[in-house]
Design a protein around this nucleic acid. Structure first.
Lengths: 262, 262
DNA sequence: CGCATCATTCCGTATTATGCAATGTATTCC
DNA sequence: GGAATACATTGCATAATACGGAATGATGCG
C-alpha cells in the first residue's frame, strides 16, 4: 500500500464538498497532516488539473480533470447501459422517477436516473453518494452484503439522516432480514421526508448483488398508483435487469434439485 | 512534486479508456514502470474504489469512487449553473444541440449540453475530452490563450482528427487570429464530418477566457436556418453568459475612456 | 506601520517507495 | 495430461524519496 497515495486520496475526499473552496491550513487540519506535506500533494494535483488553485486567494477546489475521469469510470460500468432501457420502462409504467444505485465503499451511488413526467421531484442527482442504511434502494444494497461487511458497516456508525432513519443496529438487521425475505425494500421517509421509496436487488452472474433499482415518489402519488402495483412493477423490472446481467436463479433453473433453492 | 502520486495519476489516465479492462502487464507497459510498482499502486487505488479489479480475470478498470468525485468537481464549477439557462435559450432559438466547453489541460471538456428536438445527433457527450485545435468551440478556447500556452500547445503536436483538421501550425495561428477578430469561430467538419460548429468565447470577471458555448449541427440544417442568423444567436448568448459571469467589456462601460477599448 | 496568520520553500533525516528476484498461479501447447 | 510459459503476486535489501520541523516570504488586519 502506498502511503503518499492514500494520503493524497484522503485529501481529494476532503475536497469533495460542493461549492466550497479550501485553504491549505483547513485541509491540513482535516487530514491531520503538516501543511508542508499537504502543500506538496496539492501542488502535484494542480499540475495534473485534479485540483485547481485560485491564484489570488490561494484557495483550492477539485479540478476539471476529475470530470472526464469520473465519466470514464461511469461508462466502464456496463451495468449502466443494460439498466437504461429497464429504468425507462420502469419510469414509463409507473410515471415516477426511476433510479439505479450501486454500492461504493459504505455509500450508495446514483449511477443512472430516468425522470417521469411529474413536477414534484425528488432530488437524487447522478453521482450522489449517501450512507447505505437509509432509503429503500440503498437498504436493498445493504441487505445482500456479507455478514462481515454488515458488521463493519454498523461499527462505522448509523448516522441519522432524517426523522425516520433507523439508527439502532438490531432494528436495522431486522429490517434487512425483511427485505431479503420479500426480495424488495420499501422505505417511508427514512431519508427523504414525505417520500416513499421502493427498491429491488440486481444480482450479477456470480450471484452477488451489484446494484438496486427502484422508484422514489411523494406519498400522495403512491396512494393513487397503489403500493402493491408499484412493488410488483419494481420487482419485475429488477428481475429483468438481473436476467440481462447474466444472473441465473438456481431454484428456477431446469435440472437443478429443489434443495438448491434458497 | 510527489513522484509516487504523479505515477499514480499517470496510471489513472492510462485506465481512462471506455469499455476496457487492463491487465497488470499492459498497464506496466503503458506507464513504463515495473509490474510490482504498478501492482502496489493499483492495490492502493482498489482499497479506495478508485480502481476495481475483477477477481476472476485479474483485470483492472476505473472504479465507482471516481464518479462521485467527478460530479463533485463538476458541481464546483459555478459556470455550469450560470450557463444552463443560456444553453437552453440557445438550443431553443436555434433548434440545435447547444454545448458548453471548458479548457482542461490541452483538451476541451464538454461540461454541459442541451439537446434540441432534432433526430440527427452529434455525439458529443458530457465529460468528453478532445484536443483543442479542432472544432469551433474548442478552437475558440485556444484562440484566447496566452502566447506561451499556444507555443506549448503546438509543440505538443497537432494530431489529425478528421479530414479537415488543421495540422499546420502557421495555418492554425491564422485561423485563431481570425476567430479573435470576429469574436466567433465557425468550423466546417474539422472534427466531425459533415457538421458545422459555431462557437463563441465566454470571459470571466478577470477578462480571461473560461469557456466557450455554441452549437453543432449537420450541414443540411444550417442551410435552412442560415449561417448568419446562427452566428448572431451564438454570439448573443455568449455575451449574455459573459455578463452573468461578471465580465465587463471596458469599451462598453460608461465613463471609461475610449482609449481603453481593445 | 507592525504584528500575526498563513502559504511556501529549504533541507537533513529516516521512513517508505522502489524494483529485482523469487514464488505462486493460471493458461497454453505439445 | 504434463511441461512450459506467461503473468500476477510477494519478499526484501537498498537508497531514493517523501517527510515534517523550521526558516522565509507574502498577505491582511488592527
Amino acid at each position: 500500500m502506498v502511503q503518499s497515495l492514500l494520503r493524497a486520496i484522503e485529501l481529494l475526499e476532503a475536497l469533495k464538498v460542493p461549492e466550497r473552496w479550501f485553504s491549505l491550513a483547513e485541509l491540513a487540519e482535516q487530514v491531520q497532516l503538516p501543511p508542508s506535506t499537504v502543500h506538496r500533494i496539492l501542488q502535484t494535483f494542480c499540475e495534473k488539473m485534479y485540483v485547481v488553485r485560485d491564484d489570488k486567494t490561494h484557495l483550492y477546489r477539485l479540478g476539471p480533470a476529475l470530470i472526464s475521469l469520473g465519466m470514464a469510470a461511469a461508462n466502464n460500468v456496463k451495468l449502466q447501459s443494460a439498466a437504461l432501457p429497464v429504468l425507462q420502462k420502469l419510469s414509463h409504467s409507473t410515471g415516477e422517477d426511476a433510479f439505479l444505485v450501486i454500492p461504493a465503499g459504505f455509500k450508495g451511488l446514483v449511477l443512472e436516473k430516468v425522470e417521469g413526467p411529474n413536477n414534484l421531484k425528488v432530488i437524487e442527482k447522478f453521482g450522489y453518494e449517501v450512507d447505505l442504511h437509509c432509503g429503500a434502494l440503498r437498504k436493498t444494497l445493504l441487505a445482500y452484503q456479507s455478514q462481515a461487511y454488515l458488521k463493519d458497516y454498523i461499527e462505522h456508525g448509523l448516522k441519522r439522516l432524517a426523522n425516520h432513519t433507523i439508527v439502532d443496529a438490531a432494528e436495522l438487521l431486522l429490517d434487512l432480514a425483511k427485505i431479503r425475505e420479500e426480495g424488495l425494500a420499501v422505505s417511508y421517509g427514512d431519508y427523504i421526508e414525505d417520500a416513499i421509496g421502493v427498491g429491488a436487488p440486481v444480482f450479477g452472474s456470480d450471484g452477488e448483488i451489484i446494484a438496486s433499482i427502484g422508484v422514489i415518489s411523494p406519498n400522495a402519488r403512491v396512494e393513487k398508483i397503489g403500493l402493491e402495483t408499484l412493488k410488483q412493477t419494481v420487482k419485475d423490472c429488477a428481475d429483468e435487469l438481473c436476467y440481462r446481467m447474466g444472473y441465473v436463479n438456481f431454484s428456477m433453473r431446469p435440472g437443478v434439485p429443489a434443495s438448491f433453492a434458497k
